[in-house]
């Protein structure tokens, strides 16, 4: 047994010198948080050339799963971690630590030519569950509603599912897309489409609707009048230290929060 342990330790010592673990920071997860992480990483790497940061998407569920399995240092998430994921993390020796980096307004978007400009939560639910199928039922044109949604690994999907659909079943023909950009592109090209995206993705190619009479904005989120607001998170294994801690501190700094605002999300202060 002693020989066996000695052999293993020798093996690891030799290999740890030959193939040292790099100091790179790896992140994956939410496509909503992705623009913040990517821009912040670019600026941070310019200031710290010895640190390399890799940012990947995949959706909040994928990012958290990667963190639990030790594949990434930081999980980007547009929803809170679930109890099931906390259990898996604890069992796997990962002590999940949550950092809120920004706030967001889940924005309901339609084609710019659509005359409808506001909607309430009940109507939105009826559209996504298939009870309302034509825009004329909402005072719009006689045009079928094309329901566009995020896919199931998305945190945005889960927040929408919980806050708007109250976990009711989606219309069966809903288009489930893998990213905010894919939704943006589909809504832009489809006159009858309706979709939901993070505030940071809203641009002139789509029209954001008022929800319950309120536009998604920094003000409406801060004064809590916008009904589909949420926080954006970074999850790490334990309280962030070293380079990871430096990077997250940077995002929380005035400079980092300015990046959050420039991208279109709502800074913490």
């Amino acid at each position: 047994m002693k020989k066996f342990l000695t052999l293993i330790l020798t093996f690891l010592t030799v290999f740890s010198f030959v193939f040292p673990k790099s100091n790179d920071i790896t992140m994956s997860g939410s496509t909503t948080v992705f623009p913040i992480s990517q821009k912040a990483a670019e600026v941070f790497m310019d200031k710290n050339p010895s640190i390399n940061i890799t940012v990947r998407g995949g959706g909040s569920g994928v990012g958290i799963s990667n963190l639990i399995e030790g594949k990434v240092d930081i999980a980007n998430s547009s929803r809170k971690i679930k109890d099931k994921e906390v259990y898996q993390a604890k069992e796997n020796g990962v002590n999940v630590y949550e950092t809120v980096i920004a706030n967001d307004a889940l924005s309901i978007v339609v084609h710019p030519s659509n005359p409808v400009s506001e909607i309430d939560l009940k109507t939105l639910k009826n559209i996504y569950t298939g009870k309302i199928k034509n825009w004329k039922e909402l005072g719009g044109n006689d045009m079928s509603i094309v329901v566009v949604s995020r896919d199931v690994s998305s945190g945005t999907f889960e927040v929408f599912n919980e806050k708007v659909l109250e976990k009711a079943k989606y219309r069966e023909d809903a288009l489930l897309l893998a990213s905010n950009n894919a939704i943006l592109s589909t809504v832009k090209d489809t006159p009858g489409a309706i979709g939901y995206i993070g505030l940071g993705f809203v641009n002139e190619n789509v029209k954001a609707l008022k929800v319950e009479g309120v536009y998604p904005s920094k003000e409406s989120v801060n004064n809590k009048t916008y009904k589909i607001a949420r926080s954006l998170y970074l999850y790490t294994n334990g309280k962030p230290k070293g380079n990871i801690g430096k990077f997250i501190d940077f995002i929380l700094s005035d400079e980092g929060q300015k990046i959050v605002e420039e991208i279109g999300y709502i800074p913490l202060r």
Binding site: I8, L12, F15, S16, V18, F19, P20, K21, S22, G70
Partner: peptide, 8 residues
């Protein structure tokens, strides 16, 4: 022993 956590 998961060496992935120690070396690449």
């Amino acid at each position: 022993i998961n060496s992935d956590r120690l070396i690449d």
